[in-house]
Amino acid sequence: MTIVILTALLGIGLILLLLEILFIPGTTVVGIFGLLVSLAGIAYAFLNFPPEIAWWITAVATLLNLAAVIYGFRSGVWDKFSLKSSLKGGTFDERTVGVEVGMSGKAISDIKPIGKALINDEVYEVKSDSGYIPVDSILTIIKVETNKIIVK
């Protein structure tokens, strides 16, 4: 009966450790519980077997648990959970390249205080410095900030 209990404790500990590594990584609760069950199995071995046999059981359990951890890391499971792409955007994404102070354009929507303007045959979102500007008005760029075009 002691062999069955020992085998069950060590087997359940190993299974829980494998579950943590292969199927539910990141939770650590299942892995810690599996480690505790394995340690309980080793303690049970020292209580019910002679020390020589208990040390052999400890060595075998340690090797099996270590092999499970190494297999888990080499199996590629962690690649499924890792981020492989990155964001390319930023605060300046070259929206205002080719636009300079003093250039003129035409309002293609009402600008109150933000609207659309046609500058060099391209549509830009612009902000009015002086408030409302009606559609079809001629605009002049007075300031170009990072992603903002200020007109009057």
Score class of each variant (00 low, 15 high):
96 T>D: 03
36 L>I: 13
34 G>F: 05
145 E>C: 01
6 L>N: 08
74 R>W: 05
66 L>W: 00
34 G>K: 13
126 V>E: 00
102 G>N: 13
71 Y>W: 04
146 T>V: 14
35 L>R: 11
151 V>N: 07
135 V>P: 12
61 A>F: 04
128 S>G: 12
14 L>S: 14
41 G>L: 04
106 K>V: 07
93 D>G: 08
102 G>V: 10
118 L>A: 06
113 P>T: 03
88 K>W: 01
56 W>Q: 15
50 P>T: 11
14 L>E: 05
49 F>P: 10
82 S>F: 03
113 P>L: 01
31 G>K: 15
28 T>Q: 15
50 P>V: 10
31 G>Y: 06
29 V>E: 11
9 L>G: 07
92 F>C: 07
1 M>Y: 00
79 D>Q: 13
135 V>W: 02
14 L>N: 13
93 D>P: 00
43 A>K: 13
144 V>I: 03
87 L>A: 10
142 I>Q: 04
89 G>N: 11
83 L>H: 04
105 G>Q: 07
117 A>V: 09
42 I>W: 06
69 V>C: 13
80 K>P: 01
101 V>W: 01
87 L>M: 07
151 V>H: 07
83 L>N: 09
106 K>R: 08
86 S>N: 10
59 A>H: 04
64 L>E: 01
70 I>E: 00
8 A>F: 03
17 L>K: 11
126 V>H: 09
10 L>I: 02
98 G>R: 09
79 D>S: 11
69 V>I: 15
19 L>S: 11
113 P>N: 03
71 Y>I: 03
127 K>C: 09
89 G>T: 12
8 A>R: 01
4 V>W: 04
32 I>M: 15
95 R>E: 06
104 S>A: 00
55 W>G: 11
29 V>F: 13
8 A>E: 06
48 N>S: 12
57 I>Y: 01
45 A>W: 00
26 G>M: 08
101 V>E: 12
94 E>P: 01
66 L>S: 15
1 M>E: 02
70 I>F: 00
133 I>K: 08
114 I>S: 12
